[in-house]
């Protein structure tokens, strides 16, 4: 391996670990790795450093430093820990209801489209509505700490004192209109729980025990953002006029720069409105109107908890046609209980 080859492989190795390796380079990367001992050694060194750095920042000495990144972390463990964790989960779930405003833009689109208050916002949001109506989308839910950009689930905890993530934090939401969803989350013990609806029925696949199926499509929406407020996260036709009344909308066009979203809608809570985040940011693709991220910023902090919650689009590739049916998510021999 020449010095140039080594430098090239090193760049590919860093890209691989950072998740930025492009497909066109992957073949070369894997071939070099498999065929050249020096390359494999180079990657092995980097891999060990990468993991050690991750440990250093999340469970080592550094994890307890840098208050800027940890202003809201409570790493003390005491007998009240479980109670506090339970309260925190409940708190988070309540706040997550507000995440129904993921589709605030949708409701607002109709409001503005019909009232003509803001022609440009109306046009933009109408496009977002259309984009939400078609195709499959996958979002990951993050609770955000501190400066509003630190993901709660991946913030630092000493290894021995690591608290279990809240059930909804880190959850995945798969959406297909009309009214189909799958929510993949963890229960309090960390076991995977999958719930969903194909629009006609609802179902839940717990970690243990029988799969439960209901003819009521709303039956297992409790854990879904907006589900308990009857503001279906998954339905762009939902009446969001109540939310719309509480927020002012501004469509921003960020200055062109690499890495920045094409366009953003900022919804600011009106002074006379109560509850909910002070601000909602919706990043979307200016061309396709595809919503890429939604952040609920400056959540009420009276009871602690994350300062913000984010939905991040991680995939818009088509899912399997039967993805929203429960059979897709469990073994064939699993017991299924039909609820009346």
């Amino acid at each position: 391996m020449t010095d140039a080859d080594r430098a090239n492989f090193r760049a590919l190795a860093h890209a691989y670990l950072d998740g930025t390796l492009v497909d066109s380079d992957r073949v070369q990367f894997e071939q070099l790795l498999a065929s050249d001992d020096d390359a494999a050694r180079e990657l092995a060194q980097l891999v060990l450093l990468h993991d050690a750095l991750d440990r250093e920042f999340t469970s080592g000495v550094l994890a307890s430093q840098n208050a800027r990144f940890d202003t809201h972390l409570d790493t003390h463990i005491d007998p009240r820990r479980n109670v506090r964790a339970t309260k925190r989960r409940a708190w988070l779930q309540r706040r997550v209801f507000v995440a129904a405003t993921l589709l605030l833009a949708v409701g607002l689109a109709w409001i503005f489209a019909t009232t003509g208050r803001d022609a440009s916002a109306s046009d933009v949001l109408a496009r977002i509505v259309e984009a939400l109506r078609s195709g499959d989308r996958t979002y990951v839910l993050r609770a955000i700490e501190g400066d509003g950009r630190m993901r709660r689930r991946e913030a630092a905890f000493p290894l021995q004192e690591k608290r279990p993530p809240a059930p909804i934090d880190g959850a995945l939401v798969f959406l297909r209109n009309p009214a189909s969803f799958v929510l993949v989350r963890r229960d309090a013990e960390g076991h995977e729980v999958v719930s969903g609806s194909d629009g006609a029925s609802a179902w839940i696949v717990p970690a243990e025990g029988p799969v439960r199926v209901s003819s009521d499509p709303a039956r297992f929406r409790g854990a879904l953002p907006g589900g308990r407020l009857d503001i279906p996260f998954i339905d762009p036709h939902a009446d969001l006029s109540t939310l719309a009344r509480n927020y002012d909308l501004v469509v921003q066009k960020p200055a062109p720069a690499a890495g920045r979203p094409d366009a953003r809608i900022v919804a600011t809570r009106r002074p006379d409105a109560r509850g909910g985040p002070k601000e909602i940011e919706i990043d979307f693709d200016a061309k396709s109107a595809l919503v890429r991220a939604i952040r609920l910023v400056n959540l009420p902090q009276a009871q602690g908890g994350p300062r913000a919650i984010e939905f991040e689009l991680i995939d818009d590739a088509p899912l399997s046609p039967d993805f929203f049916e429960h059979e897709y998510h469990h073994a064939k021999d699993r017991a299924v209980l039909e609820e009346r």
Binding site: D18, G19, T20, L53, D54, E56, F57, T58, L62, A63, N66, F69, R149, M150, R151, E154, A155, A156, A257, A258, G259, R260, P261
Partner: peptide, 20 residues
Amino acid sequence: RYRAGLKPGRIAQLLGLAPN
């Protein structure tokens, strides 16, 4: 990158830099 677990693209977005 290591405390928050963010990927370069997201870090770039937050810092106003190019991902590269």
